[in-house]
Nucleic acid binder design. Structure first.
Lengths: 181, 181
DNA sequence: GTCTATAAATGGATAGAC
DNA sequence: GTCTATCCATTTATAGAC
């Protein structure tokens, strides 16, 4: 578990390829050889990282679901995304970055990483349906919201500046607000 | 030059870290050791790839500049972006992906990769100013347009499906059209 | 279960023949 | 300028002591 957290940090900061097993072990304060007692391969380790992150996302969405109306939930979603803008400026989006890496590694991993985005899209679509959209429009709006936030994260990372995330988050909130009435 | 083209292809498809010098040399049909006659290090090679791509982007924008009015130019920009949706579904955005890689490699490369996005943002901002926006609004709209396309590319890659790019491109074109009148 | 030492493979980079 | 052979560092992964 300490290893998963350490790997999670390093994969986010440096990516999969540039994070060696030795470095992950050091970050977790365990001896290098020890890693292979818990994870047969490096891919097994990244798979555990993705699984943990997916569980976190599910819990996060479930927590937001306790909020009042759908507009409030969506606004809160954007707000909490925006709160991580500094981290995104420094290292990019953890979910988007790992999805990118997973696609390149290939195998089961790409599918595992896809689950995160599918959960987000499904949840967002449901909120838009609650707001009165029919399924198709809701799906399109969900896709749009995630696209904007992912693109803004990439630009924030590129320029090492949280402003793109904040600017686009504000635009989205205004859009949601206008849509609600 | 053959080497730059081969490196460009492989970096796009596999990323920087997973593309070995030997593999690039094979793709370019030159002997492995030969690479180092033209490029002192692997970083020099990726720098050449980025420089070439930046020149290509500048030429592309300059070509679009020959089109009639700003709305038409922006629509054409989005259209030509959309034409590469299949490639984006397979391997992601070449510019966004390399920017991501460059940020992780560090050093001069991140700045070099940033230039591509800065050129795009400056050009887009100019078009929005031509359409009547004042500078601040134009800057925000430029950022929004690029964010949407980058995010859509990432989702297309994640799902190996060009639909996100096409859907978001259509949304952008409708937005531009509504803005023009 | 935990740690050390090391094997096996890969990849960036260089030397030097032609 | 072009190509071959090879060095050296790093990295994944394993063997085996404790």
């Amino acid at each position: 578990m300490r290893l998963i957290l350490a790997a999670n940090r390093l994969f986010h900061r440096q990516g999969y390829e540039r994070s060696s097993i030795a470095e992950i072990a050091r970050e977790a304060a365990v001896p290098p050889g020890n890693v292979y007692y818990y994870f047969k391969t490096k891919e097994d380790l990244v798979e555990a990282v993705i699984a943990r992150r997916n569980a976190f996302i599910a819990a996060w969405l479930s927590d937001i679901d306790k909020s009042g109306d759908p507009e409030h939930r969506l606004t809160r979603f954007v707000d909490e995304f925006e709160k991580t803008s500094k981290s995104r400026a420094e290292h990019g989006c953890p979910v988007g970055g790992l999805s990118h890496d997973a696609n390149r590694i290939g195998g089961e991993l790409a599918a595992q990483a896809r689950v995160a985005f599918q959960m987000l899209l499904d949840w967002l679509q449901r909120q838009f349906v609650f707001m009165g959209d029919d399924q198709e429009v809701a799906q399109s709006n969900a896709l749009h919201l995630i696209s904007v936030l992912q693109g803004a994260s990439l630009l924030a990372h590129t320029f090492s500046d949280p402003a793109p995330v904040e600017s686009e988050a504000n635009r989205l909130k205004a859009w949601l607000h206008a849509m609600a009435r």
